[in-house]
């Protein structure tokens, strides 16, 4: 059974304006996203800023209440669960955020930060909690004397390790990583990525791994989903997606990543324009619309739900972008 199943997830925000704060428009941040995640698996979610990947992350751990759709975790529908029920589920699902400086309370010591999950869940005695906190630090490769210190005393990479330790505290089965390395330097990034891979092997953790850097996502994931303007346009295993991308947007993303390999210096087809706003998005295939593709009109009347083109490789079947 899948650990997590997301079906037709939609998250709409009203855009209000005028004297009476009437709803002027709807921002479709996430518009019909579905995927599943097996225990021990990593699903990467990639796309440009504003494509809705962080909104998906926050909906999955139910920091947001989705407009519609279903989120099923370990067989339980948590789409409409209240705070008390969610507290139970959050032992099993945790989150690591992008900016460790902002997600750690600057007035708490590392010890307090790491013991807080146990306090909230009412687990253990005071002595046990501080023992566990020390053990967590050891697992993420930090010295135990860090317990009495404050977040500002640590570098970005160390703070991200603390964020990961906190996420591990309750022995979750799923960790949602929202841009966990994009604020880090490359040498530190490699250290943190290796740590995440090690922890996954030890505990059979499942990750929903979000980043805008496709080479990082590709490196970390079993399967990768590419998002564009609130929708998944393609989903496949990491290797398949790299070798055989089918959607024009995936190809454009792959082509725009700078490569160190000088022997493969290639002429790039540059993507023009910016990501359109998710407020009143175009009908049909949004990427075809951006590219002003001659066949975009045809996609408006079509059913654009993902279709399986080869085993495990799903792509949006629009006439303009899919080959």
């Amino acid at each position: 059974m899948a650990l997590l199943t997301v079906e037709d997830l939609k998250m709409y925000y009203p855009v209000r304006g005028g004297v009476f704060r009437r709803t002027r428009a709807v921002c479709k941040a996430v518009d019909g996203v579905g995927f599943s995640l097996e225990p021990g698996e990593t699903l990467g979610l990639v796309g440009e800023s504003g494509c809705g990947k962080s909104t998906v992350a926050k909906s999955v751990v139910r920091l947001l209440k989705p407009t519609s759709g279903r989120i099923v975790f370990e067989g339980n529908d948590i789409t409409r669960s209240g705070p008390a029920e969610l507290r139970g589920f959050r032992r099993e699902m945790q989150m690591v955020f992008q900016d460790p400086a902002e997600s750690l309370n600057p007035r708490h010591t590392i010890g307090q930060i790491l013991e807080e999950p146990f306090v909230i869940q009412k687990i253990g005695t005071r002595g046990e909690r501080s023992e566990w906190a020390a053990e967590l630090l050891r697992r993420v490769g930090l010295p135990v004397d860090a317990l009495g210190r404050y977040p500002f005393e640590f570098s970005g990479g160390q703070r991200q390790r603390i964020g990961i330790a906190r996420a591990l505290a309750l022995k979750p089965r799923l960790i949602v990583c929202d841009e966990p390395v994009s604020a880090l330097d490359v040498s530190v990034q490699a250290q943190v990525l290796n740590l995440l891979l090690e922890l996954q092997q030890q505990d059979r953790l499942a990750y929903l791994f979000i980043a805008h850097d496709l080479s990082v996502v590709q490196h970390m994931s079993d399967r990768v989903a590419v998002m564009y303007l609130g929708k998944i346009v393609e989903i496949a295993t990491a290797t398949e997606l790299y070798r055989n991308p089918r959607h024009a947007y995936t190809k454009a993303l792959l082509e725009s990543i700078p490569q160190v390999d000088l022997s493969r210096k290639r002429e790039r087809k540059l993507l023009k324009g910016d990501v359109p706003s998710p407020i009143n998005p175009p009908a049909g295939c949004a990427f075809g619309h951006r590219m002003r593709h001659p066949k975009w009109q045809e996609s408006v009347a079509m059913d654009l739900r993902l279709q399986e083109v080869s085993p495990g490789h799903w792509v949006q079947p629009c006439p303009c972008c899919t080959t």
């Binding site: 990593t42 970390m220 079993d222």
Partner: peptide
């Protein structure tokens, strides 16, 4: 230490 697109994942 840069992740490369053409390397095997994980």
């Amino acid at each position: 230490c840069l992740p490369k697109l053409d390397h095997p994942p994980k």
